[in-house]
């Protein structure tokens, strides 16, 4: 399965970042913190010229309550291995963070230029929705696996119809996994065993049963050792042991249940 349509240089970066956990580059904030977002994100640029969105910018809630940066990194690494369009992520230990700024942040690479949130692209939905069917169906499976509670948000899906390349490419990026994984699972076993799925996004997108079945199969076969590697390598300052255990257990449990979870929402899945 490969539903990633990022430009080649971003894919190259993604391969590199998949092999790393913490950034060793120097990053500089560009512009102001994006106000009135819970996580207070902000754009950053590295000394090597890479660009990204850093978050959370705020210390609230503290990492031991909600490990948002760890969630972003784990989701990005899992999606990379599955061929799903989540931008590459590295963890960022901000040694110069002020008292109200989060020291344990993540940087999500900007997946492509000229990005439009779905809120803007939706006016072209008759043309775009059919072309999003395969990726939206696979992402619904992924969101259900990681229990992403924040998908219904027009700003968390970016699209760009890039006709500067031949043939033109519809570039797609699903963002924001801060409220996934331990967001609920940290409250105990019954939460990761709660077999609730996430619907295809954006609303009205046709359901592609083949793509959904393919994603289910890929997740069912996801190597347990790789899963452990992705979760275990997150430094303790970004992820408490209690949350780490919940994430490992939750992903493992739901891996075996993902077909049933999706079938309860989309009857007809083989």
């Amino acid at each position: 399965m490969n539903l990633r349509t990022f430009p080649p240089q971003v894919e190259q970066l993604a391969r590199q970042w998949r092999g790393e956990v913490l950034t060793s580059s120097t990053w500089t904030q560009v512009g102001d913190v994006i106000e009135h977002f819970e996580s207070e994100p902000f754009f950053v640029r590295s000394s090597e010229g890479e660009t990204g969105l850093a978050k959370p910018g705020t210390v609230e809630p503290p990492v031991h309550q909600l490990p948002r940066a760890a969630h972003e990194k784990i989701a990005s690494d899992l999606a990379f291995d599955l061929g799903l369009p989540v931008p590459p992520v590295l963890l960022w230990s901000r040694s110069g963070a002020g008292p109200k700024q989060q020291r344990y942040a993540s940087i999500s690479a900007l997946a492509f230029p000229r990005a439009n949130p779905w809120a803007m692209a939706a006016r072209l939905s008759s043309r775009l929705l059919p072309r999003l069917a395969a990726v939206a169906s696979a992402m619904a499976v992924f969101d259900s696996w990681v229990a992403n509670a924040d998908r219904q948000n027009d700003g968390n899906l970016l699209v760009s119809e890039d006709d500067s390349v031949s043939p033109p490419v519809l570039r797609v990026a699903y963002l924001d996994f801060a409220n996934s994984l331990a967001y609920r699972w940290g409250k105990g076993e019954r939460w990761w065993k709660w077999e609730e799925g996430v619907a295809c996004y954006p609303d009205g997108v046709p359901w592609d049963v083949r793509s959904m079945a393919l994603a289910i199969g890929e997740i069912e076969r996801f190597p347990p050792a790789t899963l452990r590697e992705i979760v275990n390598r997150i430094p303790g300052s970004f992820l408490s042991e209690q949350h780490r255990t919940a994430i490992r257990e939750g992903l493992s449990y739901r891996q075996s249940r993902i077909r049933g979870i999706m079938a309860s929402m989309y009857p007809g899945i083989p």
Binding site: I34, H36, R114
Partner: peptide, 20 residues
């Protein structure tokens, strides 16, 4: 709290940018 402009700026923060 910034009224309608606040809402617009929350959605349009990418290539189309509505300043907070």
């Amino acid at each position: 709290q910034g009224g309608a402009l606040r809402q617009l700026s929350q959605v349009h923060r990418w290539s189309l940018y509505v300043m907070p």
